[in-house]
Amino acid sequence: MLKDITIGQYFPGKSIIHRLDPRIKIILIVAFIVMLFIADTFFGLGVGMVFVLGAFLLSGIPFKMMLKSLKPLMPLLIFTGLLNLLFIRTGDVLFKWKFLIITKLGVTTAAFMIIRIVALIIGSSLLTYTTSPIQLTDAIERLFSPLKVIKVPVHELAMMMTIALRFIPTLIEDTDKIMSAQKARGADMETGSIIKRAKALVPIFVPLIVSSFRRAVELALAMECRCYHGGEGRTRLKQLKTSFRDYAAIFVTAVFITGVVFADKINFFI
């Protein structure tokens, strides 16, 4: 059950996508999202799709993982689709039954929205699949570091994010262990009324909170023992470097953005 959570699930690899500078990767994903939103036509979206699917192929991430990242957002997709399908009432009527009216415009808008969201999810999951959480926060810290000028504690925020990301799997593991231990003592979390089930969570939450606090204290101590004192004058083990492949990636993305714009134009002519 808990194993299915895939927040920030990193998929180690050595593909060109993995090796891109994470800062560039984040910027390019933002560019990709912009690309999706300037696309007004199916042609434009198609170009965006080709872009993201091509990147996926290059990354060597199994196709299965892409579907897995879509699964939890299925309800959202269905909801968006239905909303557009049922509530757009202009255009040629395709189908009518009592108060239900489905129009051609409704169908195309629904399809358009769904494709757009799917592309969005694929793009962002590609980022988390190919970038380790550490790289990601590092890149975010760097990208936002100009904000330090206006006294935004960028380094501290990034460190908090790193710690949070680092401890998600640990907390999941803790929860799993505590649940097993209480189940071994006959705790029953699956049957009974809602109140009974809520009560059954006490034996899980109390030890979990206790252990999170213990971990937090230990971590704080460990950081202090290693003389951590914030971002001032701190150097890095892994320097972020932009190289030829990053410029190539920027170029390809620029080409595709132009492609989207032109694809939309073509659509007007035919």
């Binding site: 803790d174 505590i178 006959g186 029953d188 034996p203």
Partner: peptide, 29 residues
Amino acid sequence: RDIRFKVGLVFQYPEYQLFEESVYKDIAF
């Protein structure tokens, strides 16, 4: 569930599973 009463399992570092307000209540869980 009945099997779990028949085969008692004490995990590694079992002290992390304590949760009740008193020792008595925890053992009685």
